[in-house]
Design a protein around this nucleic acid. Structure first.
Lengths: 229, 229
DNA sequence: GATACCTTGTGGTCTGACCACATGGCTGAC
DNA sequence: GTCAGCCATGTGGTCAGACCACAAGGTATC
């Protein structure tokens, strides 16, 4: 067992035992090294891994926010992992699109009829923002991503929402890079806007099957048109 | 930008540009540090993160397998991340079960009618192994997990398979820990075996809807009975 | 009483050293 | 000439000690 893994195991044990809770601070690197009888570099390597897994957040300086604080952010590591493996081209883009369709279809079906008017209104605000003329394309895609994540969140499952958000973020760069493949952007944007409205309306009406079908068509249509991947 | 992040960015860029491919070796830690003008500890921290993300595997010694080799293992980081966040109790078990149901239902629906006889036979072998009398319970659950992952793999989507496998592994410890809640194990095991057979039969018959319904009932029933979480 | 300063503790980084390990070539015996 | 054993080499793994940048919070000053 490498030394930094020993530190990791110890921290995980403390987390599972409740000795470390959300918002708590880890002992300082020097103190932790002393407690466990290891060197500071080993502690630092362990903290890097915890940071990469979204378990701690580090900050320099002094005060209550400084040091390594326990957080719960399963999203960032997922996003980073997906992005890296996409970069190696060992994760087919088609599989990601298929997974998105599957997750989002399920989410809107779940959300249909359950979503509160306030939630629907919040999602509609995003769509309104996307209606603005002369909206830069990059901004359009960002709002688009936000809308899809908001949709997924309506199903009230943090794991699904997290996976969705990570998928969206991980492929965002590829969507932007594929922009040249859609030279005549205006009509495409108009279609996407209309599809968004239709999906949201179906959710608000409680028609889960329709919402699921619409969202699937929307996603698959976009990727087919933009030839991402 | 912290120094180790600079190293990470560089490696990711090389991966995306194709300068680093699966199976390639990273330069040695000392060489990489020299190339990028950073210190060896910073390089090591970056490699720890890459290792945690399943992008490289390190080995000591000499020869072709030594050093940091590029691999593609999106599963381990997913599993580790899920496990850690489960440990902090900030990932509800109910959400995980729900996600399993959704992914597996989709997978068997996809697999139905498409799975080859060889694939079905391979899955059936796992079920045959689970029929063995006096099978230790731990071994039963391991085979069970293998069967479910095999089912998910039939849908031919590496992302879904990976997520499934990670979910299964991350909760395995909790399933074992919940064993005392099911004191009368024999009839439960018999029910699970029968359900497995039924699901596989539906897949082989090409009846996707039935397979999806059966697998959903199977998963939800087990968690309800064992009160995991 | 308000402001500027400085002490203190945090993570961030670097240097240089030594260890354990596995390979692969070298050396010696046969 | 062949083979077994040995050791040089290069790899990651670990450590100790030092210095820096930073931010908070107390402290001295006006």
């Amino acid at each position: 067992m490498r030394t930094h893994e020993l530190v990791l195991r110890q921290v995980e044990a403390d987390l599972a035992a409740g000795k470390l809770r959300l918002g708590d601070r880890l002992p300082g690197e020097r103190a932790l090294a002393g407690e466990l009888g290891v060197s500071r570099p080993s502690v630092r390597e362990a903290i890097r891994v915890l940071e990469a897994m979204g378990v701690v957040r580090t900050a320099v300086g002094s005060g209550p926010d400084a040091g390594a604080v326990i957080v719960a952010d399963p999203g960032s590591p997922l996003t980073a992992t997906l992005r890296l493996h996409l970069a190696t081209s060992h994760l087919p883009m088609g599989d990601i699109v298929q997974t998105r369709v599957l997750l989002e279809s399920w989410a809107v079906r779940e959300a249909a009829g359950r979503a509160t008017p306030a939630q629907v209104a919040a999602a509609r605000q995003l769509l309104d923002a996307m209606d603005e003329p002369d909206l830069p394309r990059e901004r359009f895609h960002l709002l688009d991503a936000e809308f899809h994540v908001a949709l997924a969140s309506l199903a009230d499952n943090v794991l699904v929402s997290t996976i969705m958000a990570s998928l969206r973020e991980a492929i965002h760069g590829y969507v932007i890079a594929a922009a040249p493949h859609v030279p005549d952007w205006a009509p495409v944007a108009a279609l996407l806007r209309a599809q968004h409205r239709a999906v949201l309306a179906a959710v608000a009406d409680g028609d889960g099957d329709l919402a699921a079908a619409l969202v699937a068509e929307h996603i698959q249509g976009f990727y087919k048109a933009s030839r991402v991947g």
